[in-house]
Nucleic acid binder design. Structure first.
Length: 572
RNA sequence: GGGCCUGUAGCUCAGUUGGUUAGAGCAGAGCGCUCAUAACGCUUUGGUCGUAGGUUCGAGUCCUACCGGGCCUACCA
């Protein structure tokens, strides 16, 4: 049996994610997981919240809660939204879990044993008023280059010049506004990625089937300037994985934690262990997904992420895995995405611009969003959400082409034969042509899904729906019924089976609507159609069904206009 | 500044290793059907493929320059 380990980039804890985040990792990962399960593969689909780092601490402070409590609350919020979007994670973990603490410390210890950790004393800006060291971008001041007064310590957004926080004129804390800052020395651990550069380079070179977006970003980091740079993997923060060398103290680092980007990808592994724990399973049950000597050799590991996450998944995390010297599974394929823009600008969490997951579900069921987002996934370049496009696509594809097909078939049958699959009649040329057409299209659909070519897969699925309407128009059971009711029965029996077939094929994209259709057809069978002809005989004569309610109600112009104005500003 | 991606019909996008008259969906127009969520089907109008050069028997596809859009640039994650 094929085995797929699928991970979605883990969403950061500080707030509800917007649709751009969703379509950039979790949603396509879910599509692939659902598809592979439907094809009979054994799937382990993992996600989690990414809970450490300065923004999490600041968000907790702003919310007036202890950071642990804030993260626990936000984890629940994100978990609930994931469920409501039908993201079918086998486990939705937390990077703050005990498992991740232990594994992160373990891997750091192994890296140190292998000479890949270096201690570096560096200078950092400390804010006395805030009682914390501040990352470069949390220091603001006047740009020495252009005079912009709100330049950040890493870069001036006005003139785009790269800056060092000490370059700023009149620097202040972006957190409190305090100017009581000083430069202090602090000791940190660095991961010697540079020592693994050749190995990483060769590994990336061997991945010639990866998206250009993925490999070009990796290559840039490997070859830019002096090549891959070492990276600090510890921080002076309170909240995080305490720095320890395996289960031993790490002298001089007692008050420090690992950097969020060091422990976050490790959580993919730890979350799988959490999955085993929460299901009462053994170590071996999760290790067979991750330890090559325990079965993971035969696993295909696919990661999904937005392009901003690519360097960490192509370089830092593999460096951790390779450098450990242990038999951990390396990723086999990285599917990366560009950004989804919102109505002429970027979605923005910090500015509250765009549509957020909770708001989206307030106005429409998840299938509407899943379909639009996936069929417009930003695979080759940034793509754009507009309400007009959303309304048009959803109304046409879901309501008119798919929903109306189910409606016209079931209602015609009810009127002429009752709510039961009619018997009698034989297939003719229309039916043979349909079967041939569907066979070609389904095989193409599978090929696109296997290749994780999402927009093409959506296009092919839509064409499969259209084929049903074409067939119905050509076979015209409403006309045939008058002369030859048996023939009309055969046409409708086939059409009812088409609804069943569509439910199965469409489930990865629109799981709820698919479940509704399957229930209406009174069928428990969810077998993937290896062959079209037998698949269209699943519903046997005499089987009862019910006419489903309107599967997808159309979005009216009034709705669209009201949402357009409601989401034109920023969220409070 | 550097790197990468991108510019194809009104809109969203396909265009395989360069190979006849450049495709699809939506929108528009016409016709048909009347089972259906005024739904469906058929036909059809739209493009000197960002611009200018170059390579070639042949360029949307390769090369160069320029113009426009986007992203990344390592202490946000």
């Amino acid at each position: 049996m094929n085995r797929y380990l699928i991970t979605s980039a883990i969403p950061y804890i500080n707030g509800i994610k917007h649709l751009g985040n969703l379509v950039g990792s979790q949603l396509p990962a879910d599509l692939f997981a659902r598809y592979q399960r439907a094809r009979g593969a054994e799937v382990m689909f993992i996600c989690a919240t990414d809970e450490h780092g300065t923004p999490a601490e600041l968000a907790a402070t702003k919310a007036g809660k202890p950071v642990a409590e804030y993260c626990a609350d936000m984890w629940q919020v994100q978990k609930d939204l994931s469920d409501r979007f039908r993201l079918s994670f086998d486990h939705f973990g937390r990077s703050s879990s005990k498992r991740n603490h232990a594994l992160t410390q373990h891997l750091a210890g192994k890296l140190a044993d292998n000479g890949l950790i270096e201690e570096v004393v560096e200078k950092q800006v400390y804010s006395k008023a805030d009682g914390r060291f501040l990352p470069d971008r949390y220091i603001e001041g006047t740009c020495p280059n252009c005079g912009y007064e709100n330049a950040r310590g890493d870069q001036c957004e006005e003139c785009t010049k790269q800056l060092d926080p000490t370059d700023l004129i009149n620097p202040r804390s972006a957190v409190s506004g305090s100017t009581d800052l000083e430069v202090r020395e602090t000791r940190h651990l660095y991961l010697r990625q540079s020592a693994l550069r050749d190995k990483l380079n060769a590994w990336i070179d061997s991945k010639n089937d990866w998206p250009v977006l993925t490999t070009s970003i990796a290559k840039k980091w490997l070859n830019d300037g002096d090549g891959l740079r070492d990276r600090g993997i510890t921080r002076d923060l309170d909240w995080g994985v305490p720095v320890r060398r395996g289960d031993q103290d790490w002298p001089g680092f007692e008050s420090k934690v690992f950097y969020v980007w060091f422990d976050a990808p490790i959580e993919y592994i730890a979350a799988t262990a959490e999955w085993a724990d929460s299901n009462g399973l053994s170590e071996n049950d999760w290790e067979r997904w991750w330890r090559t000597e325990k079965g993971a050799e035969n696993v295909r590991y696919v990661q999904f992420m937005g392009k901003d996450n690519v360097p960490f998944h192509t370089l830092s995390f593999p460096a951790t895995i390779m450098g450990s010297g242990e038999d951990w599974k390396l990723v086999d394929y990285i599917k990366s995405f560009n950004y989804l823009n919102y109505d002429g600008g970027q979605f923005s969490t910090s500015q509250g611009r765009g549509v957020f997951m909770d708001q989206a579900l307030d106005i429409l069921p998840s299938d509407y969003w899943r379909w639009w987002l996936l069929s417009h996934a930003p695979e080759n370049s940034d793509s754009e959400f507009t309400w007009e496009n959303f309304q048009q696509s959803v109304n046409k594809d879901l309501a008119d082409v798919l929903g109306n097909f189910a409606s016209r078939v079931t209602k015609f049958c009810r009127a002429k034969f009752g709510e039961v699959v009619p018997e009698g009649g034989t297939y003719g040329t229309d039916e043979e042509r349909l079967i041939a057409d569907l066979t070609t299209r389904i095989r193409a659909y599978e090929a696109h899904m296997d290749a994780i070519d999402i927009r093409k897969a959506a296009g092919e699925l839509r064409a499969i729906w259209v084929a049903g309407n074409e067939y119905l128009q050509s076979a015209a059971p409403w006309a045939v019924f008058k002369e030859d009711p048996a023939k009309a029965a055969a046409i409708i029996r086939l059409s009812l089976n088409l609804i069943h077939l569509y439910a199965i094929l469409s489930a990865p994209f629109i799981p709820d609507a698919s479940a509704t259709l399957l229930a209406a057809m009174g069928s428990e069978k969810e077998e993937w159609p290896a062959h079209v002809r037998p698949a269209l005989e699943t519903l046997a004569p005499g089987q009862t069904f019910t006419v489903p309610d309107v599967l997808f109600a159309k979005i009216s112009d009034e709705d669209r206009e009201s949402w357009q104005s409601r989401f034109s500003g920023i969220r409070d």
